[in-house]
Design a protein around this nucleic acid. Structure first.
Length: 534
RNA sequence: GCGGGCGUAGCUCAAUGGUAGAGCGUCAGCCUUCCAAGCUGAAUGUUGAGGGUUCGAGUCCCUUCGCCCGCUCCA
């Protein structure tokens, strides 16, 4: 996660203050702490009016470009348009889904950490010994079925009691049976001092809940820790009900939940967060080409919605940091952003992983369903010239993006402090993402200007209201109104002045430059449409 | 999970153990023909929460919640 330090110039996020950004987010209604009036709740954040629209705009941009246009409308590595269909699966599924995916089994065991050696042990694999009959002295932990570890502990214990002990001179018990007081006088494997071991801690990051009103232990279910599995378990349904053919992708956006050990850094690591995920299914021989395709296009996409410059990087994972499902694949890369709190390092926005056939294989095994795909375009040719077809388990390329992290990156990237301007704080959102698309002001609140402003506002809302707010404001000075719009990130302000009454023109004020130009009133819609790219 | 710092109005911050304040912002009115202009006025606090010490606690003590920083963790 570390990267070479970048030169400290205004284009990086090393000089921006996260406190300033968080203060603006609260002041202008982008993001609030969840349950704030009750003292908050760690790891949860609510979006206010501007934040909700900003987030929706980012989600909509993803949906339009990924799903509806099919990877932005460009051709895939096979020379054909990219086919993506959406699903919307449940937060709660049969718990067996998470057993198959590996989320329940692998990490459900209580773990013990050693503060000194940084080693981590499964609690049920740790044993401990003390001198027979001694209820006061130090306890020595060792690893079960590990003779070297046993001998080392025995040697340390002998030294402690200043007496040569054999294995018959000690009592052995399970570490999980120790009390907190006993753990405090226990010497961990590989250490010489007591108190370096933590109490056993459960490390399953999934939220548990109960299905049904009786809420017994038999009714345990989990809130999904990723939206991906909802796609895999519907793979067969989509193939059977939709005229899709490999290669194709299934996409969905939605909430996911993880009991992060340490929620930190504003919304960056939240316990409830929203994902935008694509699972792209292809023939095993094509994974490398599709992996490269998605990796490069996803990078270009983030740049297209405003994350330009050095703050955005593409980073290939080293082999030793790959997830369990990606070891055998073409690779994993992260699209990372240099947040003010990670600078000069980077934080992950989106991961593009080759998941191989891991998930479909797991679900096929656990559910008994046949998840293989019959590809009629492959296989050797029959006498009539038609391919005989090939049956295989598709491989999957997964571009998985964090929506909340995307919003946070956009907030950080957009935040600009320019003390030379009367309104120093400006949110330079890309017009496509900006929650407020335009504002209409009467220069002065009289002489027919308010009426003209109301009419123009109404027209713009009619045409652009589905994309974001169209604001109008007649109160206070024009400078104050411009300043408020700068802080909210509204890219264009249209102002009705004295000349507007006679020649039907308005001024357009650009947020980023403060510059103005005069255009005809009936050209305003066209002007805005062009700027918003619609 | 460990260590450190912090919590007073929407924001930034004052207040020796003794009446909770200022600036900015917000709102209303006046004024105002292009960049947080000016004038007048208004609203806004269980000082994060709970307990304790004290004649009296924003201030001292304990507990708890939350935030920030560093480690740890992030399948």
């Amino acid at each position: 996660m570390t990267a070479p330090a970048a030169p400290a110039n205004a284009d990086t996020n090393q000089t921006k203050s996260m406190d300033d950004i968080m203060a603006l987010c609260k002041r202008r209604g982008f993001i609030f702490q969840a349950s704030e009036i009750y003292g908050g709740i760690n790891g949860f954040w609510d979006y206010g009016p501007l934040g909700a629209q900003l987030k929706k705009n980012l989600r909509d941009a993803w949906w339009q470009d990924v799903v509806m246009k099919g990877a932005g409308g460009q051709l895939g590595p096979n020379g054909k348009p990219v086919s993506i269909v959406p699903v919307d699966s449940c937060l709660i599924q049969n718990p067996k889904v998470w057993e198959a995916s590996g989320h329940v089994g692998g990490f459900n065991d209580p773990m013990v950490d050693c503060r000194e050696t940084k080693a981590r042990y499964r609690a049920d694999h740790l044993m401990c010994m003390g001198k027979k009959g001694d209820k006061q002295g130090q306890i020595y932990a060792f690893i079960e079925h590990d003779d070297a570890s046993f001998d080392a502990a025995l040697k340390k214990l002998s030294k402690y009691v200043k007496q040569e002990l054999s294995k018959d001179d000690v009592d052995v018990c399970a570490f999980t049976g120790l009390s907190a007081e006993e753990i405090a006088i226990t010497v961990g494997p590989g250490t010489k001092e007591v108190g370096t071991l933590t109490a056993p801690r459960a490390f399953n990051l999934m939220f548990k809940t109960y299905v049904g009103a009786t809420a017994s232990e038999d009714d345990i279910a989990y809130l999904r820790p990723e939206t991906a599995q909802g796609i895999f378990i519907n793979f067969k349904n989509v193939v059977d009900s939709t005229r899709v053919a490999l290669p194709f992708g299934i996409a969905q956006t939605g909430k996911a939940f993880r009991n992060e050990v340490t929620p930190r850094n504003f919304t960056f690591r939240s316990r409830e967060f929203e994902q935008m995920e694509i699972e792209f299914f292809c023939h095993p021989s094509e994974t490398k080409a599709w992996y490269t395709f998605w990796r490069d296009w996803r990078m270009a996409w983030w740049q297209s919605i405003g994350l330009k410059g050095d703050n955005l990087v593409l980073r290939e994972h080293d082999k030793d940091e790959l997830a369990h499902y990606a070891k055998e694949g073409a690779g994993t890369s992260d699209i990372e952003y240099r947040f003010p709190f990670t600078a000069p390092g980077f934080g992950e926005l989106e991961g593009i992983a080759d998941r191989t056939d891991f998930d479909l294989r797991q679900h096929a095994q656990h559910s008994g369903a046949k998840l293989e795909y019959f590809d009629t375009t492959r296989g050797e040719l029959a006498p009539n010239g038609q391919p005989k077809g090939e049956r295989y388990l598709p491989h999957v390329i997964e571009p998985s993006a964090g929506l909340d992290r995307g919003v946070l990156a956009i907030l950080c990237e957009s935040y600009t402090k320019d003390d030379s301007r009367p309104s120093p704080e400006i949110m330079r959102f890309h017009p496509r993402i900006a929650p407020i698309k335009a504002a209409v002001f009467p220069l002065v609140n009289k002489d027919g200007m308010p009426e003209m402003a109301a009419k123009l506002t109404s027209e713009l809302r009619q045409r652009f209201g589905h994309l974001g707010f169209i604001e109008t404001d007649a109160k206070q000075s024009i400078g104050k109104r411009y300043a408020r719009m700068d802080e909210a990130g509204c890219p264009f302000c249209f102002t009705i002045d004295g000349d507007s009454l006679t020649d039907q023109t308005v001024t357009v004020r650009d947020r980023d430059t403060g510059g103005q130009e005069r255009i005809a009133m009936d050209k305003v819609s066209g002007f805005l449409a062009e700027k918003l790219g619609v």
